[in-house]
Nucleic acid binder design. Structure first.
Lengths: 199, 199
DNA sequence: CCTACCGATCGGTAGG
DNA sequence: CCTACCGATCGGTAGG
């Protein structure tokens, strides 16, 4: 289906040059189509942008969320989610870094449907993480002195900063400080737990 | 001087709509000038973008760095720098949030002079923070179990995430979690210091 | 600093 | 999905 190819191209181009910098003519020449062949499926550039956001969100879910759904709820799954998230950045699923981070920064000052879609996607994802953090605390796997919200905002900060670091400075070890920070935060145990190593 | 007005306008517009989305025609109409009156001072759009980055860096320095230079080196100055940084975001010095964060995300995939200037500015700033963190550790005001680099990357993550949070979700308390995280990190003392309260 | 203009590209439409 | 086209805007230049 041509429509899917157009959306994929828009998401790939958008992650690098921006979701608004992307032009219909560029996508058309990239895919060997005419401009009307590109825009015909969507009616307007904004609808195309919305479709790209939707596709990026589904891709994120498929790459980060789904593979981890089988992990035990709580700290184990939270750790797995964070590692899957970092791995998704390392694998460069989108050529220009995290699509939804770039789109958030680009559209945060432009009221409209695209901005709303990006914000809603982020809210959904942060809520997933928060639920897992709360669960980890309820299971006494994680200290309760910090609220689940605060934990999630810090985890998000580490990943966002890692993505930024990687994209701007192009260092191979750009995500290591993020991993260190995440591990430190998630190692905060509710008690100085003495754990017996399995035989 | 007209040139300064053009640069200011470019920096203000660029923080919101992006440094590349900004157009010479828009700046011209904003200032009541002709397009050639705008571009004549710079020769090319890229030179104008470079001038805007330079101006934003000077502004950042004037708003965040200079006011704090008189504080005692070490933890005190590091705390003051972080608070000045958050205050600069709260005061909305640039209408579209931190100019240099937006520019970093926008240009991280576009090799060229603008990208290099943005990266160099960030390196400078992170080095300032790192030096102060190292000083704080040398003065035994801050635990040494985390490297100065790691501390600075975490501090940077909190501020970046706060800026992102503020811009995307428009909540008045958007920076509070950043403050909490910063305080927690900088409260890590080298010893369980018993402090006598002043009379 | 201006007017006047260049070729190129933009988003989008008409008609098929 | 195509060709052909619309008005608008882009960065930049010529000439003053």
């Amino acid at each position: 289906m041509t429509r899917a190819a157009v959306v994929d191209s828009a998401a790939a181009l958008g992650s690098g040059e921006g979701l608004d910098g992307l032009s219909i003519g560029r996508i058309a020449s990239e895919l060997g189509l005419s401009k009307s062949g590109v825009i015909g499926h969507f009616g307007s550039k904004e609808n195309l942008q919305l479709a790209a956001v939707e596709a990026a969100a589904q891709r994120f879910r498929a790459e980060v969320w789904d593979p981890v759904a089988g992990e035990p709820a709580g700290l184990t799954r939270l750790r797995a989610l964070m590692e899957a998230w970092l791995s998704y950045l390392e694998r460069e699923v989108f050529p220009g870094g995290c699509f939804l981070t770039a789109a958030a920064v680009e559209f945060d000052d432009r009221p409209g449907a695209v901005r709303d879609a990006v914000a809603a996607t982020w809210t959904l994802w942060l809520d997933v993480l928060e639920r897992e953090a709360a669960r980890a605390q309820a299971q006494e796997e994680l200290a309760s002195e910090i609220s689940p919200r605060q934990i999630v905002l810090q985890l998000n900060a580490y990943v966002m900063a890692g993505n930024w670091n990687k994209q701007l400075f192009r260092q191979p070890e750009a995500l290591t400080p993020s991993r260190v920070a995440i591990d430190r935060l998630l190692e905060m145990r509710p008690l100085p737990a003495s754990r017996s190593s399995p035989p």
